[in-house]
Simulated scan of single mutants.
Amino acid sequence: MEILASRVLFRPKDYQRSLRFYRDELMLAIAREYGGGTVFYAGQSLIELSGHGGTDHASGPFPGALWLQVRDVYAVQDEFRGRGLEIARDARQEPWGLHEMHVTDPDGVTLIFVQVPDDHPLRRDTRG
């Protein structure tokens, strides 16, 4: 399996409070904003604050997930199943257009494997 990109995904209980912390207190540069959240540059990685937060989305001791972009999430799912790895949530297209599958690590952290379709806004060049 080839990982194309990754980011840490936080689902804060209070999105606005966390947004102010990362943006105004830590002064992290914004990589991208979208209707449901904000992505910040964090060195060679990204930190995403999701507006879909709260304890109902937090997994284990870590209130978020690790976001891992792959070329074909359905092929990765088949590969994992072939090796006997348990899939926490089958791959499917989300309302926001990404195809996502969840796996849980031994400590309860959710790993979200993501496929970005060719027509998704993440694939568009936003430079003027």
Rank of each mutant, 00 (worst) to 15 (best):
G53N: 05
I47T: 00
W67C: 02
G36N: 14
E25H: 14
L49E: 04
D14Q: 12
L49F: 06
A88V: 07
D119M: 06
H102N: 12
H120S: 09
G82C: 04
E79G: 11
A58K: 07
G97D: 07
L66F: 10
S50W: 02
L111V: 01
L68K: 04
G60H: 10
G64N: 10
A75S: 07
S45Y: 14
V39I: 15
A58M: 12
W67T: 06
L85S: 09
G128A: 15
F10T: 02
M101N: 07
R123Q: 15
L98I: 03
A75I: 04
L66E: 05
H99Y: 08
G37Y: 00
F10D: 00
D119V: 01
H57Y: 15
D118P: 03
D72I: 11
V70C: 11
L122V: 05
A88L: 06
V70E: 06
P106N: 01
V73M: 01
F80I: 03
G51R: 06
I87S: 02
R81N: 05
A42E: 04
D78I: 00
G84R: 10
D125W: 05
P61L: 10
P121G: 05
Q44M: 13
E86L: 11
P12G: 07
P95V: 07
G84N: 10
I112D: 02
Q115T: 14
L85A: 15
A42G: 07
P121D: 04
R32N: 12
G35K: 10
Q16A: 13
I3L: 14
L9P: 04
R83M: 14
M1V: 13
Q69G: 01
H57N: 15
M101G: 03
E33T: 12
L85H: 08
E2C: 02
D107G: 13
Q77T: 07
P121E: 00
F10H: 10
M101S: 04
L46I: 03
D119E: 13
S59Y: 14
Q16R: 15
S50T: 15
A91S: 08
D125G: 01
V116K: 01
S45P: 07
R20I: 10
P121Q: 02
H52V: 14
G97Q: 05
R83L: 11
E25D: 03
Q16V: 08
Y74I: 09
R32E: 14
E86M: 09
E79P: 00
P121R: 03
Y74G: 00
Y41L: 13
A58F: 02
Q77W: 02
A5Q: 14
Q44A: 13
P61T: 02
G64Q: 07
Q77G: 08
D107V: 12
L98T: 12
L19Y: 12
R83S: 07
A88P: 03
A91Y: 06
H57V: 15
H120C: 00
H102V: 09
P12M: 08
M27P: 00
D14C: 11
L98Y: 05
V76D: 11
G60A: 11
Q93M: 14
A5T: 10
H99D: 08
F40E: 08
D24V: 12
R124W: 02
L49M: 05
F10W: 12
A91K: 04
D107L: 08
H102K: 10
E79Y: 08
Y22P: 00
L49N: 03
R71Y: 07
